[in-house]
Write a protein that binds this DNA or RNA. Structure first.
Lengths: 129, 129
DNA sequence: CTAGTTGCAAAGAGTTTGCATGGCG
DNA sequence: CGCCATGCAAACTCTTTGCAACTAG
């Protein structure tokens, strides 16, 4: 769908790739990339979402106003874990995800879509600290 | 924390109790309650959240801008399932929730907080349709 | 050269806040 | 009667959009 390879697009993609284990707001991306305007960020993010390369989710504490984006390529098969303390995003492996989904489908007849569910909690590292 | 029992507060509470299995936006509440102003809705919702009577979550498709609130009283012990089609909110029972959480803690050392994680998917009724 | 992109500024949408008025206790 | 809560409007924040200028292919 993107037709031209502009330098803004490239910067954005590189940025997202580098921060693939974080949930990031459009505002923060624009702040970190001085050569990309806020509107270009929004437009490209929307485009990437349509392409299925990233997907939206909410901030750790659910109170944040801004949307956050998380890379979704090859992540459709499993759920994610988001730490409320450090904001780090963990990937539950496909195997495990499938098990949980099966377990819920069996007892509740509800089929969870792993691609857009995020489990919130605290990661091992933060709990220790 | 609420000091007076105003009629707006009462209407809001009744409304939330009645819609306890849905995720509802402030805008919609204000629309459905002509005697309660939008700002009163926001202020009381914030108040209820501070009291722990409700908690925030995102809309079914994750694209909705408006925040949504879900009654949280007696719901801290389990996770919720939100249907992307009809928006209905289902309660995973405490037992089952605990099992899932244990299972994740065991394999990932990540402790999920049931109070604010919502699993998205499609319910049995909508899948049949 | 042509169509897709960008940047800026203005428009929208949702949420918060200041302040005078009104109502609960 | 005194203090809290409401309503309205203004202020804010985040996101989207119109449009002219720019640029990748």
């Amino acid at each position: 769908m993107p037709q031209y390879q502009t330098k803004q697009r490239k910067e954005l993609l590189d940025y997202l790739a580098f921060h693939s284990d974080e949930q990031i707001s459009a505002r923060r991306i624009a702040r970190d990339l001085p050569h990309v305007s806020l509107s270009a960020v929004y437009r490209n993010l929307a485009l990437l979402e349509r392409e299925g390369k990233i997907s939206r989710c909410t901030n750790a504490d659910g109170r944040e106003t801004s949307y956050r984006f998380v890379p979704g390529e090859a992540c459709r098969g499993h759920m994610h874990l988001s730490c409320r303390r450090c904001g780090h995003l963990y990937h539950l492996n496909d195997e495990k995800s499938k098990l949980l989904i099966e377990s819920i489908k069996a007892s509740e007849a509800f089929s969870v879509d792993p691609a857009d569910t995020v489990l919130y909690g605290v990661c091992a590292r933060c709990r220790r600290a």
